[in-house]
Every structure is written in C-alpha cells, then in structure tokens.
Design a protein around this nucleic acid. Structure first.
Length: 487
RNA sequence: GGCCCCAUCGUCUAAUGGUUAGGACACGGGCUUUUCAAGCCUGUAACCGGAGUUCGACUCUCCGUGGGGUCACCA
C-alpha cells in the first residue's frame, strides 16, 4: 500500500517547488490507490509563523491537493485526520525524546554539552586549516559519571548521532545508486537543547511511524539522506524508497529563491494564474509523459505519472510559458466560470460592474486574457469610453466624412436591430456586413470607425462583439459621441 | 575547498545503440482579418569537449570542462 507524504515547514507560504513536490506525492498515491498525507514539520521554533498551517491548508485546497490524512481546516480551525497522528511535529515531542533515548542507551547516539561558541570556533579553525567542518567528538569520551552529573545539573545539551564507520548507499528512484562515505558525514544533532528534534530525527521517526513508502523531496536532501539511512538501520527499520527531485531554478540557474522574483504559490494565484494552470505547469518541470502534449488534466497526470521518468537536471522556471498555459486554461472556461474566477480580483480593487455586463465582457475578452487580473484593467473601458484622439476614428484608407457617414449608418442599424439580433454576435455581424456590401464599401470603412468609437482604442475586440457586449443604449451613445468628436 | 548531483534548441522537454534529433513556449514569416487576440500553416534554433566500447553513439564507459546542491542546535 503506497503511502506518500508532503512535509513542509510552515513558513506562511507554499513554495512553487513545494507545490511540485506535493503534486508528485499526490500523483503517486492516487495512481496506486494509496494514501497521501500531510505532515507539518515545525520543529524550528525560531521560524514559527502564527497561522502558517491554516494558510498552507488553504492554499493546498485551492490548488486541489488536499491530503487524505493529516491536518485539515474545519470552520477555520486546524483539526487532524487519520490514525497516525498527531501530524504536527511540535505535538509529537515525547515520541522523539523516547527514540533519542533508545539510541543513547544503545550507544548509537550521545549527549553533547559543547556550547555553540565552542562549536563556532571549532568550525572556524577547521575552515582556516582547510579541514572538513565536523564535530570533533569531544563529548563522546565523557565518562558516565560526568554525563550523569552534568545531566542532573541540567546543563544545556544536545543528542548527537554517532555516525558509524564505513559508507552508506541507497538507490534513488530517480538517480540510481548514490554512495557517500560516512566520514564525510558529521555527527548530526538529533535532539536540540530546547528539547525539539532536528529534521533528521523527526523525519525518520515519523516516516516510519506513519508507514511512509516513498519519500519524494528536493535534491537538496541528497547529502543528508545517508544520515537518515543510518538511523533506519540503527532502529532496525526498513527504509522507504527515496526519490530526489531536480531543483527548480532561477533564470541564472541557481536554486529558486525569493530574491529573484515570486516563489510562492499564493503570489502566482494573486497575480491571476489559475490553480489548474499552475499545477499543470509545475508538473512539467522535470517531467513530461508524452512527447507532444503540454496540457494535461489531473486524471491524465495521475494515469501517466512515473517517478522513474523524472529528469535529473534542474529546471528553470519560465513564466513566459506559464503565461501561455494560463491563457490556454482561461480559454477552456465557460464565460460563466470565467466570471466566477475573475470576480475576486474585481472585488479586491473595489471596482463594480453589473453582472450581465461582466459576463458579456468575459465572453468576448476571453481569448485575449493571459492572467485573470487582465480583466480588471479592461473593466473601465466597458463602463465608459476611454478618452481618445478623434483622429483615431478615421480609417487609414478613408477620411472623416466617410467615417461620419458610416458611423451614422451603423447607429441607425443598431437602433433598428430586430430583438433576436441582439442574442447572437454572428447576427450582429451579418447585419452590419450586409450594409457594407450593399453600399459597396470595404469592411474597414465601417468597421474601423465603429470599433474605435466603441472602444476608444486602436486594438480591441471586433465591433460586433463590442456592440453585443455594450448593448444598444451604450453603443449608440458612444457612436454619437464619436460623431460629435469628429465635427 | 571536500563531498554529492547534473549536462539535448534561449527556456521546458522527447529520444532508452541505427530518427532528416521530435514537440511546446518565445522569436520570424504566412493564412484569416477593420484592429488586437484566438486559431491554422510555416521558418530559425540543440546533442558541452576529448578519448574509448561498437559495424554504428545524444544514448554505454572514462577523463576533462561547465553548472548546481550541500557542508547548522534551519528545514
């Protein structure tokens, strides 16, 4: 039974790389009818962010990646689902303490009383001497007596893993066999002086206790995996499978960082990217199941996902392609759905627009949108004509008089449309085009001035679409305004 | 610097010893067209280098080179 987990630290936002890690965990669990769980790794109290878990859960559900087990939001409160809880590490302290104690009792770990000052200077000396920066095991030689007295005096101390001799290998699902010599590896602190475990202890204990079968995480964890393998061995537990994902990169190929732009899923959502576009996009960073397909539904991704086909090299985040993909997803919406998507963005800036007009606007602007926020900028042009240079009304192959004649004709046409014409953009088009051909004119003679009169812009949807969207009263009004501007 | 990982168009990728090295974004051209999009057609553009192995290497091996990651009581 496959059990995967996403185990972020609650920083208050979901990193785009985290989204991909989370997605891959979900895909693997879903395709094998397994379970996907969420675990909150909040063992660093210095980085504690109030409300971060709530924010994370909100984002996860917005992108459609809610976990089967773990923390859930019920009426705004964090509850926990599942038999392996708690799923928040800060609520599991006694468990880690117990396992650390077992390790110490069996001689696989030891207390270390060294101050951070001593550790710092040790590290500095090693750096100057161009040696490996590694704990010198000073506290490993402490006598039982000394340890006992210092413990009872409640001296600050940590528990360190006594890294065994030899080398450690593991078979990464994506990269194959990786071997690292144990003497490259420091005696990792397992329990901190504040009584909290470090990631390394907590992740092993929890993945074991929660029966995790696949650990899918970023490449930055490769070098510490031997520590984890060692712990599994020392505890006598079977290690899960490891799959280390390639990094997501800045344009300069360094690890994606906040410094070089937005990295939070929430940022992208706020900028008007659709959750499904973001998920699709991120799925293809380091993976593409088919040679000639870019757009995948969640179902397709689940069916086609294959850990072993994931790329080994890092992937630069290309927002230009994201823009394209977002446009594709916007195009797939019905106008009604688009209104729903766009509404929060309009509300956010405090603009108001009649529902019916918004729906018509969304209908005709749909193929022109890259991000949902684009619609917000377009609203003003529907509420009132933007100011424009009257010269713009004149088509390049005609003059002002011609524009006036044709605008007047279109105005009359609009005023006398049959009721059914208003129901269909194609009917509006054929009606106006009949006038054009009957008058022996070119399309531009009529359509250019009309479109400019309606939009006030040199580039816009077609006049037919605009007439349909704006309606009789507003269309006539705008044409009359153009007429007066020309005279 | 030690250790680890990686290397196909500018970017995301396909190819699992034999292809004119395919697709997508972007870019150029064209069609459509009153304009802008969308759509359709089309063009430019890549196997990091050097040795091997092989009848034959993008694909396998080694050595370089380049890039990245990691070396915390952070995850």
């Amino acid at each position: 039974m496959t059990r995967t987990r996403f185990a972020p630290s609650p920083t208050g936002y979901l990193h785009i790389g985290g989204l991909r890690t989370c997605l891959y965990n979900v895909l693997l669990a879903r395709q094998s009818n397994g379970t996907f769980l969420l675990r909150v790794e909040d063992t660093d109290r210095e980085r504690y962010v109030p409300g971060a878990v709530e924010a994370l859960l909100t984002t996860l559900s917005r992108v459609g990646l809610a976990p089967d087990e773990g923390p859930v939001l019920v009426d705004g409160l964090v509850k926990q689902n599942g038999d392996c809880g708690p799923y928040i590490q800060s609520e599991r302290l006694p468990i880690y303490t117990e396992y650390a104690r077992q390790l110490v009792d069996r001689g696989h770990a030891y207390f270390c009383f060294c101050s951070s000052e001593r550790l710092d200077s040790l590290r500095r000396q090693q750096e100057i001497a161009k040696l490996q920066t590694k704990y010198d095991r000073r506290c490993l030689t402490l006598t039982h007596e000394e340890i006992k007295t210092r413990l009872s005096a409640n001296e600050p101390r940590v528990v360190r893993l006594k890294m065994p001799e030899g080398e450690t290998s593991f078979d990464d699902v994506i990269r194959g066999r990786i071997t690292i010599s144990n003497n490259e590896i420091d005696d990792q602190v397992l329990m901190k002086s504040d009584g909290f475990p470090t990631y390394h202890l907590a992740v092993v204990v929890d993945d074991h206790l929660m029966n995790i079968t696949h650990v899918i995480r970023g490449e930055e964890w490769i070098t510490s995996t031997p520590k984890h393998i060692t712990l599994y061995k020392l505890f006598g537990w079977e290690a899960p499978l490891f799959a280390h994902l390639p990094l997501i990169l800045n344009p300069d190929k360094s690890k994606l960082s906040k410094r070089q732009g937005d990295v939070a899923v929430e940022d992208f959502l706020d900028k008007g990217y659709l959750p499904e576009a973001l998920v699709n996009f991120v799925a293809l960073l380091g993976f593409n199941p088919k040679a000639d397909q870019e757009i995948y539904t969640m179902e397709e991704l689940i069916a086609l996902f294959d850990l072993t086909k994931i790329n080994k090299s890092g992937a630069v985040l290309d927002t230009v392609k994201l823009d394209w993909m977002n446009g594709q997803y916007i195009l797939k919406k019905t106008p009604e759905q688009l209104v729903e998507c766009v509404y929060p963005f309009i509300a956010r800036v405090g603009k108001t627009i009649e529902d019916d007009l918004l729906l018509r606007m969304c209908t005709i602007e749909q193929p022109r949108l890259t991000r949902l926020t684009d619609i917000v900028d377009l609203i003003d042009g529907y509420l009132a004509v933007p100011t424009y240079d009257p010269q713009l009304i004149i088509w390049k192959k005609a003059d002002a008089d011609d524009a006036k004649i044709n605008l007047l004709a279109v105005k009359t046409l609009i005023e006398n449309f049959d009721a059914n014409v208003w129901s269909d953009i194609a009917l509006i088009e054929s009606t106006i085009k009949r006038y054009i051909s009957d008058s022996g004119l070119q399309n531009g003679n009529v359509l250019w001035p009309t479109r400019v009169a309606l939009s006030g812009r040199s580039a816009s949807p077609s006049p037919f679409e605009l007439i349909w969207a704006l309606g009789k009263k507003e269309s006539v009004k705008r044409i009359e305004f153009a007429l007066s501007a020309l005279s």
